[in-house]
Design a protein around this nucleic acid. Sequence first.
DNA 1: CTGAAAGCGCTTACAG
DNA 2: CTGAAAGCGCTTACAG
Lengths: 335, 335
Amino acid sequence: MIRLQDIADMAGVSRTTVSNVINGNTKRVSQETIDKITRILKEQNYVPHMGSVMLSGHGSRIIGVVLGFATAHGMQSLQDSFVGELIGTIQTEAERKGYFVMLIGGEKIEDVVDMASRWNVEGLIILGYDEERYRQLSRKLNKKMILIDAYPEGEYTFQNVGIDDYSGGYQVGEYLYSCGYHRALFIAETDKDSDSRRWNGFKQAMEKQGGFCSKSRLIVVPGEKRQRLSRYEELLPRFLEVKALAFSSDYGAIEAMNYFFDHGIKVPDQISIVGYDDSIYAEFVRPRLTTVHQDIHQKGVISLRRLHRMIEGETLKEMNIKSPVRLIKRESVKE
Amino acid sequence: MIRLQDIADMAGVSRTTVSNVINGNTKRVSQETIDKITRILKEQNYVPHMGSVMLSGHGSRIIGVVLGFATAHGMQSLQDSFVGELIGTIQTEAERKGYFVMLIGGEKIEDVVDMASRWNVEGLIILGYDEERYRQLSRKLNKKMILIDAYPEGEYTFQNVGIDDYSGGYQVGEYLYSCGYHRALFIAETDKDSDSRRWNGFKQAMEKQGGFCSKSRLIVVPGEKRQRLSRYEELLPRFLEVKALAFSSDYGAIEAMNYFFDHGIKVPDQISIVGYDDSIYAEFVRPRLTTVHQDIHQKGVISLRRLHRMIEGETLKEMNIKSPVRLIKRESVKE
DNA sequence: CTGAAAGCGCTTACAG
DNA sequence: CTGAAAGCGCTTACAG
């Protein structure tokens, strides 16, 4: 491997001078020298050894991307098509800004602390952490951090890049109401985090136009598939009566569509369905799923840009950036 | 940050000794000293600065994961749910073996060379490269490399971890034949790489049992969706006659299923369909798609294990590892 | 069994 | 405008 010294020798100058032109401390170097060194640098395809660079006071320019998903089902959540896209975007943007991205398994807090200190990481982008895990981490590690899609109990006390759940829910509610489904139900697996915000948007939209939207229209279904399906069985009469269901995820919506299909119930003729996420398979089902689209690419770009600003020393005012969201009308709602 | 010197001071020994116990050169250190140092190391939560480690002769223990997909559609291919899972597995396995994974954008060969030298990467796992790009890269960069799912023109001249395309195609052919579809067609977008191997397996299986399987039963359809669909229109009579179609991807299979659905043709009653990949949405469509499953997790584990062995200096005999594959029978084939 | 010292490849404050 | 030298935090061959 070719070293700074080698370049210096070829140019007939000292390491100092070469280093100066590389780092742009070029005020006190003659143009002639600059040109000569620049040419040699290029010819020789010189790249600095990052070990030395790190050691001599410069930052590592490494950004750690923490993969903090529950590994209960063996990294299950990484299969979400959105993870691949997000990571790809982050990598591209990082490279563009001169950063390097290192992947960190986030299951054990200690491992994250270990890797981040070992490599003197400049910042962290964290996927799949909740507020509690963030707290634990930030107690042990003093780094710039951006979370993706995290939800605090109260105010945002950390930098987050998420999506506008409320608005998505609102758009769904508004749309269903305008189609005449004044008593549509909202179905989710929890009443927290994204689910509660989406439900709130939905509720507000309904109330804006039609008066009270009772809490009983939020249906929290079991997380376990078998139980969930048997819940659907109980609820079927009510479903058929209200004629429209808004789900808090595409997964749930498609599962339900299939459930109805398997029971001979026609979507959207007998029941209209809306999803949330616009996952890659939303267009693959029949009828095509009406759902809320989020711009994952933009999310990646934003999180990187903001982390960059934090690393540069800026203090960001806004704590939570909501990337916008829009309803995609397809075929699963009868208008 | 706490340094080796600090630990040495606390223990009342020299840096050398501390370094020795950290690196397990412990033959000539008293048990007492070892214990004391170990305790302090743990108490202080010491982690070495990787810059120094790299600089003082040790490897970086970084593995570069090259994201080499065509970015034509803006990193499109990263959305494949398989990429997320693969990367997750690689990261987990790497961590388990004491490696760090750095993401590298693979679009420009020069960038890969740059990053890999800068960080003195110990090995590369490369996604989305073909033989040509691999050649270009290996001409400029002398590192251990493993490709994922690459196909050479002739013999394998590089380390590859792929899937057993032939066997998957064979299983499909065998199954369709056994169901009585002796004249089933094979549909792909190319006649190269994975497509040609899958087709060959399919063909062999048909011939094993039923005599000649003419090349005309491989249908190469256009890559552009509109054209592809209009091709299906032309081919419809033939489809209805042979009654079974094996696709080289789930994407293609599902698209075709939807096409048939939209034209009132019943799957599997009028046409049976088989996919390839067992993507996440294969179970989400109705009828559920019969397809060939591959074990992505295992692929990740294998590629890391093999790269590790290469880094350790071993010369691997086998050039191409085919991870096994099995047909999943669901509902899209009428038996 | 333990430690002083050289060396890895860079940057930077300082002297000239 | 340019360079000698110190220093970053480690490892390792070697001396004791």
